[in-house]
């Protein structure tokens, strides 16, 4: 009996350290291999090739020889960053050690939004407990809610605090200008406070095949009423070309509801759902593996969501402490209230 136990134990111990060996060692970290991993991963899973019109094979032909010639890891990082920037997608990022490579084309877009100028309109502006939202009154019966971003935790508490303070307002202006996005769950939490019933606000399609235009059947995205306090009056949402990602989901969710007017410039057009990946050398990257479309199944990547009332504003107006978008919003909401 002891011999049998010893045999069982010996076999167990002999392979105890081997299960990791059984799946093979991590891949070697040569620069050509890293380049090919990133290129082929996007080739297989990136969702926007059919929308962007990018010839991914040509980019491989252009950059692959340079990857073979890259003398240092940082040179390879620069190279991969340059290749990925051709996609014009803020959800495509490479994190190469201390450096990150992101598409920065959105930063040059006109924003014409200055919170300090808004402060001249909203004299009682205060912050919500978790700092995600600032709010006040743009007129005695018109609330103003500035959603800085959709990141972090405690978002629902912030929107509830804002709506509690704005009790009595007949209309609300929600400002998502310059909002870079964040968590979809935070966007849903905010929009649900303004929802009148469950509504489909858009569709998500996933890349689901080897061909660049292989996309899944659209999955409806819905918004439903939630929260202890909801606002059912007239709403104006302010947007600009730097309202991005989850902020654009918020615009879609809001415009599915009646009595909502979108005022400002088109949104940024960053509609991808990012997917994280990792490389054997410790670098990580992510890319859009899905796309959010509007209710007509039209993608809005790069072009953005068009407002109901287009106003861009200008630097001169901001210098004169005038916010043309907010001025227009006040006219629109005043008209809606009367």
């Amino acid at each position: 009996m002891r011999g049998a136990i010893a045999v069982t134990a010996a076999v167990a111990l002999a392979v105890a350290a081997c299960s990791s060996f059984l799946v093979g060692p991590d891949a070697s970290v040569n620069r050509v291999g890293l380049f090919e991993s990133v290129w082929s991963d996007l080739d297989r899973q990136y969702a926007f090739f059919s929308v962007k019109g990018v010839n991914w094979d040509s980019l491989h032909d252009a950059y692959a020889p340079q990857a073979g010639a890259a003398a240092t890891d940082s040179a390879l990082g620069e190279l991969l960053g340059a290749m990925l920037s051709n996609l014009h997608d803020i959800h495509v990022n490479l994190f190469a050690g201390p450096r990150s490579y992101d598409y920065t084309g959105y930063q040059s877009r006109p924003a014409f939004f200055d919170p300090d100028v808004v402060a001249y309109y909203v004299n009682d502006r205060g912050g919500a407990p978790n700092g995600h939202i600032a709010f006040g009154h743009a007129a005695p019966d018109v609330g103003y809610v500035w959603i800085l971003h959709f990141d972090g935790t405690g978002f629902a508490a912030d929107i509830d605090a804002a709506l509690t303070q704005l009790t009595g307002a007949r209309g609300v202006i929600i400002d998502v200008r310059g909002n870079p996005g964040g968590r979809l769950s935070n966007m849903v939490a905010a929009a649900s406070r303004f929802a009148d019933r469950t509504r489909t606000y858009g569709f998500i399609r996933f890349r689901n095949g080897p061909a660049h235009d292989d996309l899944s059947t659209p999955e409806p995205q819905v918004i439903a009423p939630a929260g202890p306090r909801r606002f059912s009056g007239s709403v104006v949402v302010l947007t600009n070309r730097r309202s991005l990602s989850a902020a654009e989901g918020f615009v879609l969710a809001m415009r599915a509801r009646p009595n909502v007017t979108i005022v400002g410039d088109s949104t940024g057009g960053a509609s991808g759902g990012p997917l994280g990946r990792e490389l054997p050398n410790g670098w990580t990257y992510r890319f859009s593996a899905s796309m959010l479309c509007d209710t007509a199944l039209v993608p809005f990547e790069e072009v953005g969501l068009a407002p109901d009332v287009w106003v861009r504003g200008s630097a001169e107006e901001l210098s004169a402490r005038r916010d043309a978008v907010l001025d227009t919003a006040l006219v629109v909401i005043r008209r809606a209230l009367h």
């Binding site: 392979v15 081997c18 299960s19 059984l22």
Partner: peptide, 24 residues
């Protein structure tokens, strides 16, 4: 019953999978 079980699988598909597991 005191047992040891080892399972190894390697699928070489377009995007493969290797799984190795053992339990006592």
């Amino acid at each position: 019953v005191i047992g040891h079980h080892l399972s190894v699988e390697h699928y070489r598909g377009s995007h493969g999978v290797r799984i190795g597991s053992q339990d006592i």
